[in-house]
Design a protein around this nucleic acid. Structure first.
Lengths: 200, 200
DNA sequence: TTCCGCATGTAATCTGTTACATGATTAC
DNA sequence: GTAATCATGTAACAGATTACATGCGGAA
């Protein structure tokens, strides 16, 4: 039910078309706290309209046909009841960390450095995007939203600091010590060798 | 295809049963970088076996029937090729920030404080869990994995700092200024009022 | 006149969860 | 003996993406 509510949230800022909503997710929420595709957006809009949470306020404002949606009273109440409910714990899926956890002795460290540098670029780009967004005086960001942006900045800054340190540590071969009480690292290499020998 | 690879990654540490793998995600990766349920796990294991990436090395080690899976040579190569590929950008879904962005003037600030305090508790718990995990000398964590754990710590510490500051800011009514060049905040309240009047 | 951005939508598919079903073993 | 944990699995469903299909308006 959460995508529906996110859509109601975006419409609450201003009456919006499907395209507008997609843009809002694309440029702002994306990478920060949510994602969305047309394939789910338009069916959801239809569903929300059928259920009476939104209505179309047709407008060909630019000479261009564009279906603007606005919240109904029922929609406002639904949105507000959702806002008041305890938010679910965040769901994070990050391949980088899964890969780092599984990185073993036979894997090339340069490849890992490449991964980290790529992430560094992405995060720098995202951070500068957030800063521009916050200072452009064009986008609407309310007081509480400003707090949320502040979090995005802090998180990205912490991440960038960690990335730089990690890239350095790899370069200078100064990685932290592993924790391996049962010598799983050694056994892993043997298991791998055995599997590759019998199997290929 | 990524859940499959995460499963291969877990098995690469040691031969594991479905239950073991679930536990690994539950206690370690969960909340940090990945999630997984039985409903997808067991079918995936069957699929990976059919495709020749893993084999069962049946063992009733504790007197308990338990299906242990081990990587084949093909499985190792598949895992390593995945590790070497550029990791996808992280996917984050966090209702808290979506809700904060949509928080408007008619919403109760105490409710928001409750949300933030709840998150504070969750993050503190997660952080202490990570610290224990790192220091218990029972879990296997390789050198690169240690870097990843360091990131989890830094991120959680930054988040906790932000949460405390934000809770304080709300309590003392010292929120940052909003950015609202077109007075969308004011219009929002009017739109809401109008919708509630006509509609209910 | 051709390409790009705006704009809406659907069908097939994929991915994953929830809830259920089953049963053994261990700690109290 | 009974509750918790270990252990494996399936069916129904929910949720979302990808690829496709269509067309207008403005800029080069």
């Amino acid at each position: 039910m959460s995508i529906e509510h996110s859509i109601l949230a975006v419409i609450s800022f201003r009456p919006s078309s499907g395209y507008d909503i997609k843009a809002e997710f694309e440029h702002k929420a994306a990478g920060l706290y949510w994602g969305l595709s047309y394939g789910s957006l338009y069916p959801k809009l239809k569903k929300l309209e059928d259920e009476g949470f939104i209505v179309t306020v047709e407008s060909d404002n630019d000479g261009r046909k564009k279906k603007l949606y606005e919240l109904t009273g029922k929609g406002w109440l639904e949105l507000e009841s959702w806002l008041a409910q305890t938010p679910a714990a965040p769901a994070i899926k990050d391949e980088l960390f899964m890969k780092m956890a599984a990185w073993h002795e036979e894997m090339d460290m340069h490849t890992l450095s490449d991964h980290l540098r790529k992430r560094e670029n992405e995060s720098e780009e995202l951070l500068s995007y957030v800063k521009i967004w916050k200072g452009n005086n064009t986008s609407y960001i309310n007081k509480v939203g400003m707090l949320a942006i502040r979090y995005a900045e802090l998180k990205l800054e912490a991440e960038l600091k960690w990335l730089k340190e990690s890239i350095d540590a790899i370069k200078n071969d100064e990685l932290p010590a592993s924790q391996d009480p049962f010598d799983l690292g050694g056994k892993q290499l043997e298991r791998r060798k055995a599997a590759l020998k019998t199997d290929i």
